[in-house]
Design a binder for these strands. Sequence first.
DNA 1: CTGAAAGCGCTTACAG
DNA 2: CTGAAAGCGCTTACAG
Lengths: 408, 408
Amino acid sequence: MAVPVDGGQTAGGSPADGGVPGNGIADGGVPDGGTADGASAVGASADGGSAPTIYDVARVAGVSIASVSRVLNGRRNPRPETRDRVLRAVSELGFAPDGAARALSARLKETVGVIVRRPLVPAGAPDGDDGAFADEAESLQFPDMLNRGIERAAQRRGFDLLVRTVDVDDHDPGQRIVALARKSDGLILHDRVLDPHHLQRLSRQVPVVTLAGIASETTANVHSDNRAGMVALARHLLRDHGYRTLGYLGGYGDSPDSLARHEALEAEVARAGAVLHSGPQWQGNYYAAGGAAVTERLLASGTTLPRVIVCANDQTALGVMYALRRRGVDVPGEVAVTGFDDIPMARHLHPQLTTVRQPIGELGETAFEVLYSMINHERPAERDVVLPARLMCRESCGCHISGQVSET
Amino acid sequence: MAVPVDGGQTAGGSPADGGVPGNGIADGGVPDGGTADGASAVGASADGGSAPTIYDVARVAGVSIASVSRVLNGRRNPRPETRDRVLRAVSELGFAPDGAARALSARLKETVGVIVRRPLVPAGAPDGDDGAFADEAESLQFPDMLNRGIERAAQRRGFDLLVRTVDVDDHDPGQRIVALARKSDGLILHDRVLDPHHLQRLSRQVPVVTLAGIASETTANVHSDNRAGMVALARHLLRDHGYRTLGYLGGYGDSPDSLARHEALEAEVARAGAVLHSGPQWQGNYYAAGGAAVTERLLASGTTLPRVIVCANDQTALGVMYALRRRGVDVPGEVAVTGFDDIPMARHLHPQLTTVRQPIGELGETAFEVLYSMINHERPAERDVVLPARLMCRESCGCHISGQVSET
DNA sequence: CTGAAAGCGCTTACAG
DNA sequence: CTGAAAGCGCTTACAG
């Protein structure tokens, strides 16, 4: 109880003053450093309600703040006794270093900024659906799984994620992003949150990695093998199923992922001498609501649908299947539908969704690792990292047995 | 191009030295403050690659750092000319204040720590399912929607989210959480990440709000009206459908939400003179995989299932329905199933899931607002905030028309 | 191995 | 209205 903490300024408990000689633990006055609830240290810390600082610890331990810092950060080799005193004081006071002070001093925040582009406010039901996808933007699985991957890798390095959503309609998110950048050591940007010019500018101030963007001189990019994945899917549809008319329902118009998938599909379709529908009326937005709306419009316009609708992602496919079912169109009997991503939901759709699986979590982990190397001023091995994607044949393409259809 | 920046220390461009008289914008030397790419200011900032500081801005603008700070933070009323000079220098240099320095000085980080409890590493398929829920823990919709709500409210106040996952198996996450706390102004804890004792301790150092926990003297809590929601559901099942045997498939054993739901259900069942199955063999974990496993085990043990299985949440219901279908049990014909939460997926299940809707986003927003008031040392109006929950009748309870079944 | 001191980049009383 | 200076709470050369 009687900790020599109250008295003078820094007077109390200099390392050599002894305390009760012969009693190894007398000095700190706290018999059990592990469970002392801080009651005995109230005078030193919790008085005003604010957290104890490194000065409090130093005073209680009878050492300098430099020693406290060293013990806590494992620098050099403090004497065992010093170590003990510090550790005991730390646990007595319940001390933990302030993040801002640490960051300012060490020039490292141990924080990675993550920016996701999506509607910030739940949208009203767009045309073409009946509210079935009302909360959709709130619960997209893909970006959250990506973040989980980032977080996993970050945690291994002692970093935390500082997340921020910028609205899809925000065409000048520059300020918001720069502010976030200054709270972090580096940035990971989902999809296309910034145009190339501003991205360039930003990347001169802070390390930046894009996910599913385009690598540049100053930024690295991580994505999955859109081309190979789409080629595998296209061949399955064209060769194994023999479909001759296809439609590509795209994601955001400016999405590199969507573009790459489209191109790969187009090439395969052309090579097979089949027909691909695409263009403005096939423009989606990666959301189920968007997929449903496009489908409704196509249906309403009296267009004959292609035999298979290839969607830019699973979420879109969900909307397409929903709209088709609602109009009584049989999937895959009359129109087959495929996705891209293989989010967990894909397996639980009826029919189960045939799609291309991206290693979503790994994409996130990889993005962090690349960023981490940039933060440490290492030149990343590659500016453009590609992870494999693979075809997952299930039912919505017209296959009856799920699982084993593999193509060459 | 010729900015008077190079010369002496702080000599260049004192406010009154005039520059080219009669030319309002000559002083800064930058005709277009908005788009200047910083090329002309390279000497002042981007040289070493590190970001410009407030000193650089002050020098370029020819004012003190205090003035720069005031202009940027809208304190006092700087003279229009001062304002202009500063703003021009800021945009010329692409300056943004460092978050750590700002936080340390202002004693406010504008960051809220959010802790989610879930498996950090994707689990292997547990017994009872066939990998159908492999990535489940990666993509839980509920916690992510909660976070979206927190983020929405935070963004309105200029705060960002610092997220951290603690493993469900981590029984001593104290250190990790304290560290996170020191990087934030306050903490929002999902579910039950900390035992009451440690929670108490933590909350003396930093404002804490729990989501779906229990309010205490020092912490606030936000949750939805579990009791009312469950009572509505129970009455619907007991009265409208006349079910006489029910089972409650719980969430984590220590989850206040699950406990409250269980109690409410129990009371209603007792009052109706019906039978409720529960207990250890009905212990789930809020995951589909858990729900499926429990169901499989029940089925395998030869137990007669109750007429309706009331699940602690939607995710669990997903697993239960999956397991039942796999064993050829008709839902809701033979066994009805209900959920809790109303995550977006609920509407897309077959049959559509009858559940109790929580205002998930609002729970998150509210949690932030309460925390925000605590950060500002306001005494929150209430320590225990309850938001309404309401029954969503769809198909899995046995109703045929979705939507309008309302109970009293 | 340890301590005194400087410095990280801001904000904010305190004078003028 | 503005500037000089102190201070936020740490880390890290620099001496001893």
